[in-house]
Amino acid sequence: MESKNFDSLWQEAEVNRMAKELVREYPRWRRRRRTATAVVSVALVAVLMVPVLLPRADKGYDLICCNRSGIDAEQWPALASDLLIESAL
């Protein structure tokens, strides 16, 4: 059954050929992937930086932190203001 043997041989050669094609494609894929990663990263940075960069509604402050919870945050800017004014009187 020489014909069948040749077909199997050819099939094997084709499978090896496909593997080699993959090997040759790999650097191209890796380059595309790196570009895609870079693009996604830049887009992500841009999206996340938008709230930081855009002018925001003026609340009179940028950030409030407190070491205790349950305290009304708005009292702090008011207190900062009162202290300044009282120290000038």
Binding site: V15, N16, A19, K20, L22, V23, Y26
Partner: peptide, 14 residues
Amino acid sequence: DIDDLLQEVTIALW
């Protein structure tokens, strides 16, 4: 070696 791995994996899949 990635070339060898790709070869192995292709044949395994076949």
